[in-house]
Amino acid sequence: MKKSILLILLLALSFTVSATETKLMVRAKAKDAKFIGSSIGGAYVIVRNTVNNQILAEGITTGSTGNTDLIMKTPIDRNTQLTDDKTAGFLAVVDIDEPTFVRVEVISPYNKKNAQVRASTELWLIPGKDILGDGVVVEIPGFVIDILTPNTHQYISKQSIGEGLDIRANMVMMCGCPIEKGGIWDSTPMEVVAILKKDGTTVATIPMDNPSRNIFEGRMQVTENGYYEVTVYAYDSKTGNTGVDKVNYVVTD
């Protein structure tokens, strides 16, 4: 009889503490731009229990960058939802049996290591109380810059340079959204500059122009052999967004 009562109590206890599936939508949004999704490789999301650092869920945001008119052109009132079922996000599904304080970590853009930002926030999850819709939105500041020419560790003959060595870089918002003169993401107020170093010493600073969408160009004079480094940086004083890329190359006879 006692064994039967004990068994019943154990069964009741097991039902009482059983975990409950709880859903949390996580989205990464580029500062002054749109959501980070499939077109740029997504953002990597990790949801951790803050007490023991246990990973409760992890994955990549997938989907579109969202509705441009709504996100960038429409005044947003309180409780306006910026996303729909096609907008990039990661749906974390966790099993918890009590209110749990979690840390949401976002690594983004996941496939662009030179521009990658790690951002996080924390919140309580309550068993069975889903957080959906826009969900938790983590802001990712910056620009993605890729220097196209010169190439990394390229050996360039001084004779081939002639009137100057071209610098070309591709730059987009952190969501991959395009940058161009007069566009939604207008390059006109942005400062994009190439810094040229020879053997570790700065020898020139070259402002770069934006002749076509996402492409920035400049030209530097190179008259001596040596080891060179080019740093391209971007700065938007209105938003505080910044970005940097570097390459090294060698000039020979």
Rank of each mutant, 00 (worst) to 15 (best):
F216T: 02
T20R: 13
D236G: 00
R213W: 04
D245T: 09
D77R: 10
Q116C: 02
I145E: 00
G218S: 10
K158S: 11
R103T: 13
N248K: 08
N170R: 14
T223C: 07
Y110C: 03
D199L: 13
D166N: 14
S237Q: 12
P189A: 07
H153L: 10
S187E: 02
V45M: 07
A119N: 12
S38Q: 04
N170S: 15
A30F: 01
V232S: 04
K3C: 01
C175R: 06
K3A: 15
Q116G: 00
F101G: 00
G218H: 11
V247W: 06
S120H: 12
F35R: 12
F101E: 05
E58Q: 15
D209P: 02
T83Q: 05
A119T: 06
P207K: 13
S108C: 04
N151F: 01
P178C: 09
A57P: 01
T87C: 10
G41W: 06
G89S: 13
I156S: 04
Q81L: 04
L165A: 06
L9C: 14
E180D: 06
N248H: 07
E98S: 09
Y235P: 00
N67G: 05
D245A: 11
Y228G: 03
I71W: 10
T231V: 07
D209I: 14
K29N: 13
D32M: 06
A33N: 09
G41R: 11
G128Y: 12
A204Y: 03
T22S: 10
N248I: 00
S18L: 12
T231E: 15
L148P: 03
P109A: 07
T20S: 08
R48Q: 14
N67V: 00
N114G: 05
I147E: 02
I161L: 12
M72G: 01
R78I: 12
D95K: 08
G176D: 11
V250F: 14
I161G: 06
Y233V: 07
P99W: 05
Q159L: 04
D32E: 12
A234E: 03
A92E: 02
V137P: 02
A115G: 11
A43W: 07
I107V: 02
I71P: 05
G89Y: 09
D146M: 03
G89T: 00
Q54K: 15
K2C: 08
G66M: 02
T239M: 07
V17Y: 15
T121I: 05
D95H: 09
T188L: 09
T100S: 08
F101R: 13
V192Y: 05
A12N: 09
V203Q: 08
Y249D: 02
D209Q: 15
I8E: 10
L11G: 10
C177E: 06
Y233A: 00
G42R: 04
D253L: 10
T68I: 13
D77A: 11
V45L: 09
I5E: 15
P109G: 02
D84G: 07
K197C: 02
L24R: 10
T65G: 13
Q159A: 14
G164M: 08
T50L: 10
Y44P: 04
